[in-house]
């Protein structure tokens, strides 16, 4: 299978401080890949590079074999905070991505909102939604955007435990239906294991790729796998890799 998004030897420093040290990673078409790293390991910086907000010092970023290093608008992005526009209704918010770089499709947006359990909230303003609903709207906005790769930056970190699990299950169901390519960032091992096909573990300062894990659990997954011995076994291994990465700095 061909890599849809590829980072080749990407390095970056801010002044004297090296943030990323030859990071190599790829995401295949329709794959769910998670970047797992301790807080402050430059995960968001990685997204800013992919999104073209920053230029890498070395290395390049490829999308469908084309160089997109330093170019903007090639990926669909869902930031840590929902980042909905407070003066727009939910419907107007979710078509923003299409409005910026694509073609507006209000009918599709309505349908998607309905599936996300946001039916009846099309004309509500973001402040009228709960945290989980905002996150869902933000994800639908990313999903409706014309780009083929979605980058999610710790989207559920601000939610409480139960809502987070609900959101993870919801994300999986939507993703399975649409088969979009997803690059996900988190510092939560359970979340990474539950959601992804593959996990890329980063070290801390500077961030290097420590190890890649194929997640062995079949899909569709249910939350019960979180409590199986196999899950704990893999979790242990990921945990020790992560710990080793944190102690190296």
């Amino acid at each position: 299978m061909m890599a849809q998004l590829e980072l080749q030897n990407v390095s970056l420093s801010f002044g004297e401080k090296q943030i990323l040290d030859s990071v190599n990673l790829h995401v295949n078409q329709g794959e769910f890949v998670t970047i797992l790293g301790p807080s402050g390991s430059g995960k968001s910086t990685l997204f800013h590079l992919i999104g073209g907000l920053l230029q890498p010092e070395k290395g390049s970023i490829l999308l469908d074999q084309n160089k997109i290093t330093g170019e903007r608008g090639h990926i669909s992005y869902m930031p840590q905070s929902a980042s909905l526009l407070p003066w727009r209704t939910v419907l107007q918010n979710v078509i923003l991505g299409q409005e910026l770089t694509g073609v507006k499709d209000t009918a599709a947006a309505r349908q998607m909102l309905q599936k996300a359990g946001l039916a009846g909230y099309e004309n509500a303003y973001p402040h009228e939604l709960s945290g989980g609903m905002k996150q869902r709207a933000a994800f639908i906005r990313a999903l409706l955007s014309p780009q083929s790769v979605i980058c999610l930056d710790e989207p559920f970190s601000a939610l409480d435990e139960l809502t987070r699990l609900e959101m993870q299950k919801w994300l999986l169901s939507i993703w399975q239906e649409h088969q979009k390519t997803i690059l996900f960032v988190t510092h939560n091992i359970d979340e990474a294991l539950f959601l992804s096909d593959r996990i890329v573990v980063l070290s801390q300062k500077p961030a290097r790729v420590l190890r890649e894990f194929e997640v062995p659990f079949p899909r569709p997954r249910s939350e019960e796998i979180l409590l199986t011995p196999e899950f704990l076994e893999v979790k242990k291994e990921v945990y020790y890799t992560l710990k080793q990465g944190a102690s190296m700095s």
């Binding site: 997204f47 800013h48 999104g51 073209g52 907000l53 903007r72 608008g73 090639h74 990926i75 669909s76 992005y77 930031p79 840590q80 905070s81 980042s83 526009l85 923003l96 991505g97 910026l100 770089t101 955007s145």
Partner: peptide, 17 residues
Amino acid sequence: DRDLVHYFTMSGASKKQ
């Protein structure tokens, strides 16, 4: 809001947008 500006620029918004 900086987060919103980031979202806009990463999504490929032009300066006018």
